[in-house]
Design a protein around this nucleic acid. Structure first.
Lengths: 235, 235
DNA sequence: CTTTTCCAAGTTGTCTGACAAGATGTCAAC
DNA sequence: GTTGACATCTTGTCAGACAACTTGGAAAAG
């Protein structure tokens, strides 16, 4: 499947984001009028309006009817999160995995200290769901994330599952996650991953914080290795 | 100044975000056509198109010309970042500090393994700047963050300083950070903090990853205690 | 001279209609 | 069963018109 043809509004929105980010239009300042942007970019007015709608969604501008479109932020809300991440580069993915390792090792340790019986159940349910997906030879991407999220939730600190949602899913594009899921099946890694998952879950059930953290670290370092091998082969 | 009159596309974009978030349109599924949405919401087609442009900016949908508009995410990118954080509540602050501890302990350990001589210099410069601010009895909030950022940078993984920027500064309001700075001065904590900073810096200089991580953990747990005491007293 | 009112010009918001480009499904021909 | 033609639907863009609002300057009023 080829990428869809880009529309005319996207590069205009992007040019405006960059112009604002570089200080060409300061906070409180007015953007050029729609008529000016239409002439400047040689497009119709609705295309300009759609670009401005995108900036609105970014929280960067506010339009006042009759007055103009005014800058209220220099960067899209949350934009620093993914700055410099290039999904086509191995290094970007591994950087994210390294940051995730820091958080998830701590999460496993805290989960071992804090989990309730219900949360322990949820972890084992998620472990089972992963095993069922693996047995069915379908993609384990969602069930893998669900297992990690169940652990993060058992920290009883909502920042941990929130972090994981963002860095486990948002920062890595879906097609790359889907490809990962398929290749793990093909490469026969799933039983190794299952075994690692089980060790983590059992250490958490046993309230052994040190073992939970160590098992999670081993699992995630294994993931990094698997990921490296997979990407090197596909290059 | 009164709020600007809301336009017609904003509530439509919001209704669509909610419908997607609640699973009415699953990932991969097609939204109703523009013609349908136009009839459903009794607006013109450009208004619908602007609403869809907002969803595009959110990263939630992808339009394919001739085929339709397809859901690719259930939530806007980055939406989870500050969800549920209430800066007036001690628990929110401590939750963030706990997440930061996970990342900063790992960062200290990685910095000990990876730092260049220049980065080592930068860490000691930041240590000295903190000490000078403490001696001058001025707020140490910025120099404290700069010290932590110098360590995160020495990981040579840009995700770490990015994370710290967002969770060290953006998530906690400036007035609360400023109050913290002033109260640390009043409470005579600064020499304790300096001593802890020095232990971290020296472990990093010595390339002792274990000691660096342990010193950082002790420091940040000390910070949590100090923060708790301070907040309990001001209540 | 100062303040208030009015109005023209400019700006965003919405609608209508038309056509282009592309996707999808059906049917006929091979 | 496969391929090509075609109709229908869908998104992308353009043009034109009018509504609603803002701003600044000029004129009128005090």
């Amino acid at each position: 499947m080829l990428k869809p043809k880009p529309n005319l509004s996207a590069p205009i929105a992007q040019a405006l984001r960059e112009a604002i980010g570089q200080g060409q239009f300061a906070i409180g300042q007015k953007l050029p009028s729609e008529a000016n942007l239409t002439a400047l970019h040689s497009v119709s007015r609705p295309v300009v309006r759609e670009a401005i709608a995108e900036l609105r969604a970014d929280g960067m501008v506010e339009a006042r009817q009759g007055a103009g479109v005014f800058v209220i932020r220099q960067q899209p809300i949350g934009s620093a999160l993914f700055e410099g991440i290039d999904p086509e580069k191995l290094s970007s993915i591994l950087e994210i995995l390294e940051l995730r390792t820091a958080v998830e090792v701590e999460a496993a340790s805290l989960a071992a200290q804090r989990r309730s019986p219900a949360q322990e159940d949820a972890i084992f349910s998620a472990l089972k769901a992963f095993e069922e997906a693996a047995a069915a030879q379908v993609s384990t991407v969602e069930s893998d994330l669900a297992f990690h999220l169940a652990i993060a939730s058992a920290t009883n600190n909502p920042r941990f599952p929130q972090f994981l949602t963002m860095f486990g899913r948002d920062a890595i594009p879906r097609d790359r996650l889907a490809a990962q899921g398929q290749e793990f099946i093909a490469d026969g890694y799933l039983s190794q991953i299952q075994s690692e998952h089980r060790q983590i879950a059992e250490a958490i059930a046993a309230r052994d914080a040190g073992a939970a953290g160590a098992a999670m670290r081993a699992h995630l370092q294994g993931s990094q290795q698997r990921y490296r091998r997979m990407l090197h082969r596909s290059a």
